[in-house]
Design a binder for these strands. Sequence first.
DNA 1: GACAATTTCGAACAATTGTTTCAAACTAAC
DNA 2: GTTAGTTTGAAACAATTGTTCGAAATTGTC
Lengths: 216, 216
Amino acid sequence: MNISEIDDTKKKLIEAAGEIFAQKGFKFATVRDICKKAGTHVGSVNYHFRDKEGLYEAVLQYSHISVLEKYPPNLGITNNSTPEEKLKAFIHSFLLRILDEGVPAWHGKLMAQEFANTTNAVHKLIEKSIKPLHIYLASIVRELIGHEKNCKNETAVFLCTISIVGQCIQYFKGKEIIEALCPRGFSTKDVKMLTEQITLFSLGGIENIKKELIKN
Amino acid sequence: MNISEIDDTKKKLIEAAGEIFAQKGFKFATVRDICKKAGTHVGSVNYHFRDKEGLYEAVLQYSHISVLEKYPPNLGITNNSTPEEKLKAFIHSFLLRILDEGVPAWHGKLMAQEFANTTNAVHKLIEKSIKPLHIYLASIVRELIGHEKNCKNETAVFLCTISIVGQCIQYFKGKEIIEALCPRGFSTKDVKMLTEQITLFSLGGIENIKKELIKN
DNA sequence: GACAATTTCGAACAATTGTTTCAAACTAAC
DNA sequence: GTTAGTTTGAAACAATTGTTCGAAATTGTC
């Protein structure tokens, strides 16, 4: 066995596919591109994963298990951290997941792609990855807003989570247009600054929502 | 001439295409689907618009001229309206443009699609539609933050505009996932409520960014 | 009404892309 | 070393989709 083939084809395919799916989304990624990057023949995807969709699911599963340890949403957070710190940590790791270019930073990108163009794998992805993250984010927002669990509050909490996630995803999916509007653009280097900005913005936003809830 | 053919093919094509492009984006929309909806033959797109891209540009142009009068970003705003009111009006019309299902509410949807999957027409679209809207939004944010035009402020203003737009677009592009997380979902009916929420959130966010700028 | 120009129509073409196929190469067990 | 099973490789297939083409139909002009 040649040393360069020490990694089996399956793994090579998953890693090549992960990068391309993350970059282009499921539909725009072609099997041929993936195989070329992986250095395999065109039929390899179908042989090892039945079809393109099978490969996609394998990529999602593979990235799911590795992402949470690399970018835990509660990075550097302890039980007695303030909710403000928790929110900042959440936003920070979220941005890293969708803007970082290291290996394998796909998972966040794949989720963001899925937001824009849903595939059949979306429901599994929601159950396994998106929902848990969302529940965690909601708990942080709930802490910030206050715990009275009435219907109105829960709606407000939900809407706040969407506002937070929407801001982050915009920097990934809207990259090209943002760069056209502001030539310097934003990349991995700016993650810290963007974290500051989005955290401050969101804390202010949540505070304002809270005020309104109390008023009524 | 049959009365049902009183509208010429070009117009029928543009209207059918607008709806499908807005719904699926450029790449996912097929010429055959468009022709079927328009009630024409498959070659009609190429005959009247040279190619699919020509049709797309025609749609963008057509929708551009009609959208601003239907959904002016300063709807109901006078010169002495407060910046808060202006922001609310901006968000309201932005949401209508991407969530409304009336005819032709495509333009905002097309822009939102373009954010997620850029086409060759993106640069024209930016110059003609996105940039002017963005400049207007930036001027509102600038009013709210304060007018000292230093470099730091301008960056903050820019980032705020992205936060605002990102929140709105999420309700369009992230529709399916949002519905999975919250079964009731959000539609045209909720535009008013969403406007309230995003406006409040953004005003609080901007206020917080402003505080931080003053501190330093 | 005749003729030229335009428009319509559907078949056919070409390019892309996911998938299948089958022989060749390789691996592992005996 | 032989053999059975697995994996690879490239070509071929099938489906989709944008585009082209030539004949037919329609329209406008004299």
